[in-house]
Each structure stands twice: as structure tokens, then as C-alpha cells.
Amino acid sequence: MFDLPIEGAELLAVEFGDIVNYFSVYTAVLFVFALLFTVLAIISRPEKPVDIVFGGDAYYAKKIPPEQLRFQRFMAIACGLATLGAMISGDLFNFTLFSSMIGITNIGIVAAVKNKHVLEAAYQYGIVAMVATVPLFGGAAIALATTGTLSIWELAGAGAVPLLAKMLLVVGVMGEGMAPFYIGKAEITRAPGAPYVLMIHVSSLLLFLRVVEIALTV
């Protein structure tokens, strides 16, 4: 148990050799939140989007094909699972892998949407997300090279991970879905399927919250 004055007490640790996945008060709250929204993505039906006609007071309901929504739901659930993994992972490299998985599934959630703007935004965002794996893997690799381990459990409080590695990790996570690269996501939000599109934000915010914890801990 490492009890740093950062994230509250440790609650539970699941050991796999020297890699220890753990729940602290902090990560447990994040985990519960991710779980909540994954369940919401599973159980709630999508909304029926309504659009306004500019220059008048007419409106019309958009038709969304059900198979598109099914695919979105599948991807949203996958995204939720990846987020859950990223929240409890006690291994730097696993964390980066979960992060990139979140990046992929985020694109996947909107990939089936037949809207030129949404697709364009998803594509540009996807390129950023893909490039962001470089600082992510780079950060983890530099941490491994300097300390000889990837276990957050062992690195906690030692301050052995160089600042460069931490910064690369944070930049990588930002690229996977936070501001300032986030702006592309505003366009993505136009896609229908509220419970699924919401998962994009849930995953990227939680991911960022987790990487802040990691950067302060290791």
C-alpha cells in the first residue's frame, strides 16, 4: 500500500507479479463514474434528434438508421471497457495501451455517422489521436529505460520518473482527447446517439484525470 497525500487511501490492490492494479479513493470514484456511463450506454435508448430550419419556425425530425446506432452502442461499450481498464491499471504501458484503445473507439463511435462534418472532424481528430500514441509510448518507454520498471505501484513516491516522460504522457493523453486538441470534438458532438456520443467525453475526461494522478504519483 502506498499512501501518498495525493489521492486518498488505497482501497484494494490486485497483484499480477510486480504489476499491481489498484483502487484508491480517487481511482475508485473515477471507476464508478466510468461504470455508470457504460451501463447508461448499454441500457438507454438513443434520442430522436430534432433539427431547426433556419429562417423559419419549422423543424424536422432526423431519421437515424438503427444499425448505425447499434454499431455506435457497440463502440461506446468498448470505449467504456477501455476506460474502466485505464482507471485501474497499475502499469504505465497498459495505461498507454488503454489510452490508445480509447482513441480508436472514440473514432469508432462516430465512424458510422453519415455526416460529412462529423466524419471530417473524426478523421482529423483520429490523426491527432494516432500521432498521440508516439508521446504516450515514448513516455512509458523513457520511464522504463530510466527506472527499469513500468509498475506505478513500485514507482509511487520515488520521483524516479524523469519530467520528460511525465510530460510526454500528459501530452499523449491530451492528444487522445483533451483540450486544446479537443476542439475537433465539438464537431463530433453533432453526431446523433446521445448516450454513445457522451461516452467520448466521459472516456477522455476520465483519462485526463487519471494521467494527472499518475504524473503526480510516479
Binding site: V50, I52, G56, D57, A58, Y59
Partner: peptide
């Protein structure tokens, strides 16, 4: 009410 209503849209 038994059913929902469509939201108020436009002025």
C-alpha cells in the same frame, strides 16, 4: 400524462 410531448421548438 400517459405519453411524452415533443419539446417546445422555435418561437
Amino acid at each position: 400524462k400517459e405519453e411524452g410531448d415533443t419539446p417546445f421548438i422555435g418561437y
